[in-house]
Design a protein around this nucleic acid. Structure first.
Lengths: 164, 164
DNA sequence: GGAATTTACTGGTATATACCACTATATATG
DNA sequence: CATATATAGTGGTATATACCAGTAAATTCC
């Protein structure tokens, strides 16, 4: 019996889980990984999302909020809200751009950079566990797949519903 | 040049996006799909998540909150909070279990069931777009992959770090 | 059968995330 | 140059989601 055959007319598998929606599938996985990575990150007080964000900032060249939102595939205002606790805790700071007075650039404070480096070790443990549980090759392929789904190119293909 | 070669020492690709973390990759994709599906769902006032939840309820046999939380891979208390707007709007109701007085069973109201049926059409449009943009076969495989990552079996493998 | 433990849920608090309306600045256009 | 438009951020509100601490009901264990 194939996996497909395990699904009934309602689109549920033998455990009664609704499986047909790609969006739902990604969100479910996201909740699960959130929990698993969080566990591994432990007692640092920071969430996986915050570490992601800080790592993206660390590897970028003082991005504007707009730049950062695009890199994270995140709504600009959502990013603003998400940054607040990090700014409050002195890990991140916003500096007005010299040229464009509308823009603000995001950077880690010294403390933020140190924290990000520390957390990288913790994160690597979780990441290694993921790679071991899922297979290193398959992990890399999955990340490429997900990066494609996160891309503007995919959005364009998704929205191009003209041709049958 | 392979995709792998496009990444520098910081783990970022040519767009400056931090790509190494599987958790981050899933969350980015989840944000993107959230936006794309939401668009297609349009003006019904309901979110994709709410539709997922209602579809899971529709296909289950009056699950308890616990059952439902497990099916959604969601924290029980998070589920409780997420259900509140749906209950407030009369789409979902909770009925105490006859046998176990601790437990509450979740079901759609008539109005909720009707709404869920209506939304299924909207959802199918988004889903078809996804399948077209990504490939139907690959979509199904991706959903199976994500279901595995969402499973207890995966959690067990992830946590089993004893053996090298 | 009564105490200890486990299970199911609730409420509080905090972050994550989106959309909308608004402000300020920059750019384009006549 | 003055106005029209586009861009970058902010603040409000609503949902999404997690963890923790508490309550109440069921189960286990003397």
């Amino acid at each position: 019996m194939t996996d497909k055959d395990k699904q009934d007319k309602q689109g549920q598998n033998e455990d009664g889980v609704w499986l047909h929606c790609s969006n739902t599938a990604v969100r479910r996985a996201s909740r699960h990984l959130g929990q698993l990575y969080e566990d591994a990150m432990g007692d640092t007080g920071l969430k996986g999302t915050q570490f992601s964000l800080m790592s993206q900032i660390a590897g970028s060249n003082q991005p504007t909020l707009k730049n950062l939102a695009e890199a994270m595939v995140m709504d600009l205002s959502a990013l603003g809200h998400t940054l607040k606790p990090l700014i409050r805790d002195g890990l991140v700071e916003l500096v007005p751009d010299a040229q464009d007075r509308r823009a603000k650039r995001v950077r880690l404070t010294e403390s933020g950079a140190a924290t990000q480096r520390d957390l990288t070790g913790r994160w690597q443990v979780a990441q290694d566990r993921f790679d071991k549980a899922f297979g290193k090759e398959k992990s890399e392929e999955l990340r490429r797949t997900l990066a494609f789904i996160s891309s503007g190119e995919f959005a364009k293909a998704f929205k191009r519903d003209e041709e049958a």
